[in-house]
Design a protein around this nucleic acid. Structure first.
Length: 725
DNA sequence: TAGTCTGGGCTTTTT
DNA sequence: GCCCAGACTA
C-alpha cells in the first residue's frame, strides 16, 4: 500500500522523515492524526521497525483507540506487520503498566489502586484533621492543587519550600498524604508519572532496559505535556532518540494542570538537530472560520505565526448574537439547532454547544429539557464519579487491595448496616494501635482468632463487622475462579444494593441503571483480571465517555472540545468574565490561554459557527450587566453576520424571540391583554385585568380574581381566556 | 445511629 | 443560587 497516497507535501515530509528527532507543528484540522498514524505505519512497513518497540502517547484513551484503529487499517495490507502491536495509550496508562511491572522496585505491590479526585480529597481531609489544622483555613482542594503542582514539577517532599506559612502547611499535608497513599497501596494520577520518572532516573539497568524496549517514541498534543511528562520522555529517549512529537502551541489549554507549551521550545533546544515541519493546510473549516480563528489568536504575543488556509472556499459568515440572559441564550441555542435540523441543514449529532465552565451547561440542559429534545453531555457529573458507581468500585477495590482504607470507609456502612461513626473510630484506633491495616482487624474478628478484639466492640457492632468481613473474605476467595460479572452480581445481591439505591424515584431508577451499565462494562472485561478492569476505569477521561451512538447535539466545555470537530458549533457565554474568565484577568499568561481556548473552540467548526453572548448574566449571586467578550472586538466585522457589537437596548425595549426560520428577526412583543378585560383562569376562576406590562420576553398580567384576590401572572403560563374586553 | 437541618462557603478547566 | 460539611434532633 502506498502510504503517501492522499497526503500533502508537508505531511509526506513528516511521515517519511528519517529516524531521529522530529517536531511537527500542526495547525488545527491539518491532518495531525493522519500524520501520526501514517508515521507509525511507515516505521513498520518501510523502515523495518518492530511494532512492539514503538510507543505512541496520546492525550485521551479515545485518541489512542482511534489511532490504533487507523494504524491497523493501514497495516492490514502489509504482510510483514505481524510482530506484535505498537504501544498506544496515554502517559498515565503507560506509566500504570510500567509500575505494575516494576512494583518490586517501588514501595507498592502490583495490586495498587489509583485514587481519583474524591479519594484524594478524603485523604487530604484526614491529614488536615490529624495535623489539627483548621479545615476552613486550609481548604483541601487548594492543598491538593499545590501537591499536584509539586508532583507535576517533580518536586520531592524534601525539596518543598517552607519559606511561607502556607507552603509549610502544604508540605506538612503533602508528607502525611503521601504516607497515607502508600499505606493504602494507592497512587494518585500525578504519582503515576512521578514514580516512573524516579524509577528510570534511579535505576540505570531499568533505564537502559526501557530505552532498548521503547526505541521509537511518538507524542501527540505535545504542547500539553507537563514537566514530569517531558522529563520522563527525555529519560526514555536517551541521547540519540527517535522521537516524533506533534503539537500546536496555540492549542495549549492545560496550563493550570502543569502543561507548559514552552516544552516545544525546550524540545528545539534539547534536540538542536531536530527537524521542524509546519502543517498549515486545513482540511476542516471554511476560510471564514479560519480567518476568525486567526484574528483571535494573532493577538497573542511571542508566538510563531501560522498561515491557516483551506481550499474549501470562504463559506458562510460567522453569526454573532446577543440574548438577554443565559436562559434566553440557551433557548436561542436550542432553537437554532432545531431550526437547522428541521430545515435539513444539519443532523442533530452534527451540532455542538461549547462553554467555558461546566456551570453554564445547566441553563442549556434545562432549555433542551423544556424543548423535549435529547442531548449528549461530556463531563459534568462523570459517570465514574457517581455515588452508586463509586460504591460498587469501592467493593471491587477492597477485594483487589484489602488495605485500601478510603474504599473500606466508604463500603463499611454503605448500604447502612449498623456500623456507625463510633464503631469505625474504634476500628481505626485498634488498627493504629496494632500497626496493621483495618482489614486485618476485621479478618481476625471474622475468623474469631483474637479474643482481645472481642472486647473492643459491643455485641451489635461486632456482629455487623463480622458479617461484613465474612462476605468480604468470601468475595476475595471467589475472585480467583469466577468472572467479574458474577462477582459484581454477588456483591449486589449480598449487600441488597438495589433496595438501597433504587427507592422507586426516577433518580433511584437511574442510579440502578448506572449500576447495570457498569455491569455491562465489566462484561466486556470478562476475560481480563480485576486489576486491569480497575486500572482502565480509573484512567477513563471525560472525553472518553462521549458515545457516538445517539444522534443528538453535544454539550461540552471548550477544554473537552479539543481534538473534536463538528459541522455546527455554537459557543455560548462570550462575555467578559466568562470568556475570558475573570480569574485570568490579572495574569497575562492566563489571558493568553483564555484566547487559545476560544481559538480551540472556533477551529472545531467545519461549516457554521455561532458566537453567543448575553446582555445580563449571573455569575455568582445576582444577575448583572455583562460586557461582551473583549475577544469579539478582534474579529473583523466583514467576517460576521448578526448584531453589531453594541448591546441592544434591552432595558427599554422588550423582544420576544420568535420561532421562525429567520432567527435574526425579532418581533417586538405586543400586549395581549389590557386593563379592564374580563378573563378566566383554569384554577383561579374569573377576574378583571388590573394592569399589564411586558417583561423582556413575556407579558406580566395583574388580575383581580373574584374568589382569591389579586394575582400576578405570566401570560404565556397562565393561558387566560378573554371573556370580554 | 440515621436522617434532617442549616449555615457557610464557594463558584475553571481534569488525566 | 447551589452544595457540602458538620451540628442537631428523633
Amino acid at each position: 500500500m502506498d502510504l503517501s497516497a492522499n497526503l500533502n507535501s508537508s505531511q509526506i515530509e513528516a511521515v517519511t522523515a528519517p529516524l531521529g528527532s522530529v517536531l511537527v507543528l500542526a495547525g488545527p484540522g491539518s491532518g495531525k492524526t493522519r500524520v501520526l498514524t501514517h508515521r507509525v505505519a511507515q516505521l513498520i512497513t518501510a523502515m523495518g521497525v518492530v511494532p512492539r518497540s514503538i510507543v505512541a502517547v496520546t492525550f485521551t484513551n479515545k485518541a489512542a483507540k482511534e489511532m490504533s484503529k487507523r494504524v491497523q487499517e493501514l497495516l492490514t495490507h502489509d504482510t510483514n506487520a505481524g510482530d506484535g502491536l505498537p504501544n498506544l495509550g496515554t502517559f498515565h496508562a503507560l506509566c500504570a503498566r510500567i509500575i505494575r511491572q516494576e512494583a518490586d522496585h517501588l514501595p507498592l505491590t502490583r495490586d495498587y489502586v489509583i485514587y481519583d479526585d474524591a479519594d484524594q480529597q478524603s485523604l487530604v481531609r484526614e491529614a488536615i484533621k490529624d495535623l489539627r489544622l483548621d479545615p476552613k483555613q486550609t481548604r483541601p482542594g487548594r492543598i491538593l492543587n499545590a501537591i499536584s503542582k509539586a508532583k507535576n514539577e517533580l518536586i520531592e517532599l524534601e525539596d518543598y519550600p517552607t519559606d511561607t506559612y502556607a507552603n509549610e502547611v502544604v508540605r506538612l499535608v503533602y508528607e502525611r498524604y503521601q504516607q497515607a497513599l502508600l499505606a493504602n497501596n494507592a497512587l494518585d494520577f500525578d504519582d503515576l508519572l512521578f514514580w516512573v520518572y524516579r524509577l528510570l532516573r534511579d535505576h540505570d539497568d531499568l533505564q537502559s532496559a526501557y530505552r532498548r524496549r521503547f526505541q521509537h517514541l511518538l507524542v501527540d498534543e505535545f504542547q500539553d505535556t507537563n514537566t514530569a511528562q517531558y522529563s520522563l520522555l527525555r529519560l526514555l529517549a536517551g541521547e540519540n532518540p527517535d522521537l516524533f512529537v506533534v503539537g500546536d502551541p496555540d492549542q495549549s489549554i492545560y496550563r493550570w494542570r502543569g502543561a507548559d507549551y514552552r516544552n516545544v521550545h525546550r524540545f528545539q533546544e534539547d534536540y538542536p538537530q531536530a527537524r521542524t515541519i509546519l502543517l498549515e493546510q486545513n482540511y476542516r473549516s471554511t476560510q471564514t472560520i479560519l480567518d476568525v480563528a486567526t484574528a483571535v489568536i494573532d493577538r497573542n504575543p511571542g508566538r510563531q505565526r501560522k498561515l491557516l488556509f483551506t481550499d474549501r472556499g470562504s463559506g458562510i459568515p460567522v453569526v454573532l448574537h446577543e440574548s438577554y440572559n443565559e436562559n434566553d441564550e440557551a433557548d436561542f441555542a436550542v432553537e437554532l439547532i432545531s431550526t437547522l435540523t428541521f430545515a435539513g441543514e444539519a443532523d442533530p449529532g452534527d451540532c455542538a454547544v461549547m462553554y467555558r465552565t461546566n456551570a453554564q451547561s445547566r441553563a442549556l440542559e434545562e432549555a433542551f429539557l423544556r424543548a423535549g429534545l435529547p442531548y449528549r453531555i461530556v463531563g459534568a457529573q462523570r459517570f465514574y464519579g457517581r455515588r452508586e458507581i463509586k460504591d460498587l468500585i469501592a467493593y471491587l477495590r477492597l477485594i483487589h487491595n484489602p488495605v485500601d482504607r478510603v474504599s473500606l470507609l466508604r463500603a463499611l456502612n454503605t448500604p447502612p448496616r449498623g456500623i456507625g461513626a463510633k464503631t469505625i473510630e474504634l476500628l481505626l484506633e485498634s488498627s493504629q494501635k496494632r500497626d496493621v491495616a483495618p482489614a486485618e482487624i476485621l479478618f481476625a474478628l471474622a475468623r474469631d482468632k483474637d479474643p482481645a478484639l472481642m472486647d473492643i466492640f459491643n455485641p451489635r457492632a461486632r456482629r455487623a463487622l463480622v458479617s461484613f468481613a465474612d462476605s468480604w473474605l468470601r468475595w476475595i476467595e471467589m475472585k480467583e475462579n469466577s468472572g467479574l460479572v458474577a462477582l459484581i452480581d454477588l456483591i449486589l445481591e449480598e449487600t441488597n444494593y438495589r433496595a438501597y439505591i433504587d427507592d422507586g424515584t426516577e433518580e433511584g431508577e437511574s442510579r440502578w441503571e448506572n449500576i447495570q451499565e457498569l455491569r455491562r462494562v465489566a462484561y466486556e472485561f470478562e476475560d481480563i483480571d480485576l486489576a486491569s478492569f480497575l486500572e482502565s476505569i480509573a484512567l477513563i477521561s471525560d472525553q472518553d465517555t462521549l458515545s457516538e451512538e445517539q444522534n443528538a447535539p453535544t454539550l461540552l466545555t471548550l477544554h473537552a472540545a479539543k481534538g473534536l470537530e463538528f459541522p455546527v458549533v455554537i459557543i455560548i457565554g462570550l462575555n467578559d468574565g466568562v470568556l475570558p474568565h475573570q480569574r485570568s484577568f490579572d495574569d497575562p499568561e492566563a489571558m493568553a490561554e483564555e484566547r487559545r481556548l476560544l481559538y480551540v473552540g472556533v477551529t472545531r467548526t467545519k461549516d457554521r459557527l455561532y458566537l453567543l453572548r448575553t446582555f445580563r448574566r449571573r455569575i455568582a449571586g445576582p444577575s448583572t450587566l455583562s460586557e461582551p467578550s473583549r475577544f469579539l472586538h478582534n474579529i473583523p466585522p466583514k467576517l460576521l453576520d448578526g448584531d453589531l457589537l453594541g448591546s441592544q437596548n434591552w432595558e427599554q425595549t422588550s423582544y420576544k424571540q420568535k420561532t421562525t426560520w429567520d432567527l435574526s428577526s425579532k418581533i417586538p412583543l405586543e400586549p395581549q391583554y389590557e386593563p379592564g378585560m374580563r378573563v378566566r383562569h383554569k384554577v383561579f376562576g374569573e377576574g378583571i385585568v388590573l394592569s399589564t406590562k411586558i417583561d423582556h420576553d413575556d407579558e406580566e398580567v395583574s388580575v383581580e380574581f373574584e374568589e382569591i384576590g389579586t394575582k400576578h401572572l405570566d401570560a404565556s403560563m397562565a393561558q387566560l381566556e378573554v371573556l370580554d374586553g
